[in-house]
Design a protein around this nucleic acid. Structure first.
Length: 812
RNA sequence: GGGCGAGUGGCGGAAUUGGUAUACGCGACAGACUUAAAAUCUGUUGACUGAAUAAGUCUUGAGGGUUCAAGUCCCUCCUCGCCCACCA
């Protein structure tokens, strides 16, 4: 008997699988397809730890079980190689990014292979490969031609550490999403993608997606659609007016002052001489504040009076105009009408500055120490009194619209996607600047615009990309007029590369096109997309946007790239903290494998620790449990190899039942992604097989058939041990090419059932009975139970409830 | 403040969707094997009362309710996690 030793067979099979290409997807539209994909990794130099492994383990179980169910599965892997972490890693280690990426992807690939994941490596892609980014540039030009890529000078988020601008989505709490530095504002001319044109479609199409509500809500929240109105307030003694945005036009009678953002262009005009000094100081103080400070909530409200007054168009009252940093210049019109009675922020401000508070909506609440935000009935609002606030809102806007002082507007919080980066390691933006013709697209036949090799590619911080220092790169001819011209030197945000990579997997080697439509028709959309929730408003929004652009262009036939999205829970360190290199609490699979546990034990533990979508703490003790389980599978199989050669044919009912129950349970659990209970069922099955074996005198035929099915249902979880044993029991072909075993529901039920006997809902006895007895028979049987009798004697039976094949409850 | 999710043994977690709460695993304890230990195999293991592997009582964050029956449904409240947040 061979000793259980994962080292003795895991590498052997990994090599054999790679060589025989058993996981390759077939470009055959007659087969039923399934596209399983994990977010493609960022080879930044950090080693893969057990937290990452869970992500891939989930995908691999889905891919493998789908293959066994007869699907033609596309399960590819590639590298998101451009971007800051890779470049910073290269700088730190004094390597060229190209070399660094090669090293890191090689290492990552080795780590993936040693876990036995079933990727189709023939479709491997790398976003830093010119054959790939040629098409990223091609898509840029498509957006450019459609008017969806434009250049604009404006104040932008600037990361002083990474020395580049950042998109709104990449600034978290006023900090750079990558390095955590406090971001600054810098005025630069930048490239944008007009994602706001697609705001409504990005919002509406979320409905039909099989994504978690949490991610959908994050996207809804990010897009931030809000319907309201813009209202004009005349400035007293001037011709001008202040335009405000509000979603609560119904409360206009309660607007007792206006507030402008300190950066609002009209501020200068509104300042009166006696207030000039104070306003200037306030503006200066605001500028000095970092955005972290400004975004601090529950901060005391600050602001200053401009000296000017406006006229409330409803009440005709004179109301003061303030500036305050609680109004943001970037949203709406940068100015608000303040209704302290019905908005908490305005309420706080009014209390601070002793401004009047006027209630105009009446509800259940009383106006005491906070604003009443709820809808209600109008009061103190002239002819609108008595109307429900929602109705008043429409009427007031309509009436003001008559005087051309109001307009219905929809606002979005989402901004256009800033995609220029002043960094070296990215796909060059394929634009040529000509003094006469302006920004001109590079001709398609001249793509790719190659990223030149540079010795010094560190960012200078002057707002220009390092590419600006390469004269050979920048000097070129205008594609339109042929005159001397200069290349754009900014590179694209790495998220541009990842906005279409899932399409390239359908046709990864195409030199003529980004992909052939027939192949994208065949494979896309992605059926199962698996990854962490951290990309909720970045990658997942950008990729949806590009997909819609491609759909509009007729390049593809679907509007949403990812039909189902699965967000796996994190694996935390045993101490409950996130695993990170800096904390020194990471656990890498490599060491566990070399300790002899083997990849299979790790894979199983990743899924067994708890539900896949919940965070769990890693437990190395748990690993000895899953190891022991596999060892038991190994031992019972290798000890009974003779059973597989047995000629006897009589079936053992008990074993058949166990087998059918196992296959049914695992099949259903994989379907609902309940991997932890599927594994528990397999463990339980093995425990029961041990007991049967110990009793002796069992049908070898049934025993062998049951073990064989166990190997099949275990194969997606533990591909190595099952492959090894599958061959040991006499098979020639790979277990991973087998069909999923079938089960018979009828055989999962035994002839006898356990009946629960309750008195007043309390368990009193368990009795074994024939299947399908009548209610009367069951009741009679239960009443005869010795344990039940004493509880019934001397009492009157009020009611008897019988649930067939399950339970009797006597109510006394 | 808004959204999403969660609270079950010493620990990670199960529970056919209203029908035996604590499956499976870890840990702990005991037995077999062994000169011995490890490994392996076999038991026991929610708490309390009891010699008891007799019997009973209690138990799913807290408190109420609906029901023959509640971890599951309803109401009130508490705690924790994640994401968003002065967006008018």
């Amino acid at each position: 008997m061979k000793r259980f030793d994962p080292k003795s067979y895991e590498t052997k099979w990994q090599e054999q699988w790679l060589e025989s290409k058993i996981y390759s997807a077939k470009d055959n539209k007659d087969l039923k397809k399934k596209y399983v994909l994990e977010f493609f990794p960022y080879p930044s130099g950090a080693a893969m730890h057990v937290g990452h492994v869970r992500n891939y383990a989930i995908g691999d179980v889905i891919a493998r079980s789908s293959r066994m169910h007869g699907f033609n599965v596309l399960y590819p892997m590639g590298w998101d190689g451009f971007g800051l972490p890779a470049e910073n890693y290269a700088i730190k280690n004094k390597l060229s990014p190209k070399v660094a990426i090669k090293q890191n992807t090689d290492k990552f690939k080795k780590q993936l292979n040693q876990m036995g994941f079933s990727y189709d490596w023939d479709r491997e892609i790398n976003s830093t490969d010119p054959d790939y980014y040629k098409w990223t540039q091609w898509f840029f030009l498509l957006l450019f031609k459609k008017g969806l890529a434009y250049q604009q000078e404006s104040l932008q988020w600037w990361c002083p550490m990474d020395k580049t601008v950042l998109a709104n989505e990449q600034v978290e709490n006023g900090q750079c999403w990558r390095c955590g530095s406090v971001v600054e504002k810098k005025a630069l001319k930048q490239w944008f993608f007009k994602i706001t044109d697609y705001a409504d479609r990005l919002l509406d199409d979320l409905e039909d997606l099989n994504w978690t509500d949490s991610i959908k809500n994050m996207q809804r929240n990010w897009i931030g659609k809000s319907k309201g109105a813009e209202l004009d307030f005349l400035v007293e003694n001037k011709d001008s007016f202040v335009r405000v945005f509000t979603t609560r036009a119904d409360t206009i009678y309660g607007a007792t002052y206006l507030v402008l953002a300190p950066e609002h262009p009209m501020v200068e005009e509104l300042i009166t001489d006696e207030n000039r000094q104070k306003v200037k100081e306030y503006k200066k103080a605001t500028e000095a504040k970092s955005d972290i400070e400004r975004q601090e909530t529950n901060r005391e409200k600050t602001g200053v009076f401009t000296g000017s007054y406006a006229v409330n168009p409803a009440t005709k009252e004179k109301i003061p105009v303030y500036i305050s940093d609680y109004v943001l210049v970037g949203y709406g019109t940068g100015a608000i009408m303040a209704v302290p009675a019905h908005d908490q922020r305005d309420y706080d401000f009014a209390m601070q500055f002793n401004l009047s508070i006027k209630q105009v909506v009446e509800g259940d609440e009383k106006l005491e120490d906070h604003a009443i935000v709820a809808e209600g009935k109008m009061i103190n609002s002239g002819k609108y009194d008595g109307l429900p606030s929602s109705e008043a809102r429409e009427k007031i806007v309509a009436d003001l619209e008559h005087n051309k002082t109001a307009k219905e507007v929809t606002n979005y919080r989402m901004r256009d996607w800033l995609i220029s980066r002043q960094r070296y390691w990215g796909a060059p933006i394929p634009i040529i600047h000509c003094d006469d013709c302006g920004a001109v697209a590079v001709k398609e036949e001249d793509l790719p615009v190659l990223l030149p090799d540079m010795d010094n590619f560190e960012p200078s911080g002057d707002g220009r990309s390092p590419l600006a220092n390469d004269q050979d790169f920048i000097n070129t001819k205008c594609p339109k007029c042929g005159k001397d011209a200069k290349r754009e030197t900014d590179t694209m945000d790495g998220f541009a590369c990842s906005s279409w990579y899932f399409l390239r997997f359908a046709d990864p080697k195409n030199n003529e096109k980004a992909f052939e439509k027939s192949l994208s028709d065949l494979w896309l959309p992605v059926d199962e997309y698996i990854g962490g929730a951290e990309h909720a408003v970045m990658h997942l929004l950008y990729a949806r946007f590009w997909t819609k652009v491609m759909f509009d262009e007729g390049l593809i036939n679907f509007k949403e790239p990812f039909t189902a999205l699965r967000n796996q829970g994190m694996i935390l360190a045993p101490d409950g903290n996130k695993m990170s290199k800096s904390k020194g609490n990471t656990i890498e699979p490599d060491e566990l494998i070399s300790n002899g546990y083997g990849a299979d034990s790790i894979r199983i533990l990743e899924l067994f620790l708890g539900p896949w979508d919940q965070s769990v703490n890693w437990s190395t003790e748990g690993l000895s449990g899953t190891y022991k389980f596999l060892q038991r599978v190994w031992n019972i199989t290798t000890k009974n190899l003779d059973a597989f050669k047995s000629k006897e044919m009589h079936a053992d009912k008990e074993i058949e039942m166990l087998k059918n129950k196992l296959v049914m349970k695992v099949t259903k659990d994989i379907e609902k992604m309940s991997f932890n209970t599927a594994i528990a069922a397999m463990m339980q099955f093995v425990n029961e097989m041990y007991l049967i074996e110990a009793k002796g005198n069992f049908s070898k035929f049934s025993f062998a058939a049951a073990l064989s099915d166990l190997l099949l249902v275990l194969a997606p979880f533990a591909p190595h041990i099952t492959e090894e044993l599958w061959h040991d029991i006499g098979n020639k072909e790979s277990i991973h090419l087998q069909n999923w075993p079938k089960y018979d529901v009828k055989l999962t039920q035994s002839e006898k059932v356990k009946l629960v006997v309750q008195i007043n809902g309390k368990l009193r006895d368990l009795i074994e009975a024939e299947n399908n007895l009548t209610d009367e028979q069951i009741q009679q049987l239960a009443m005869n139970s010795e344990k039940v009798k004493p509880h019934l004697s001397g009492k009157t039976l009020k009611k008897v409830i019988v649930v067939k094949n399950k339970l009797v409850n006597f109510v006394v």
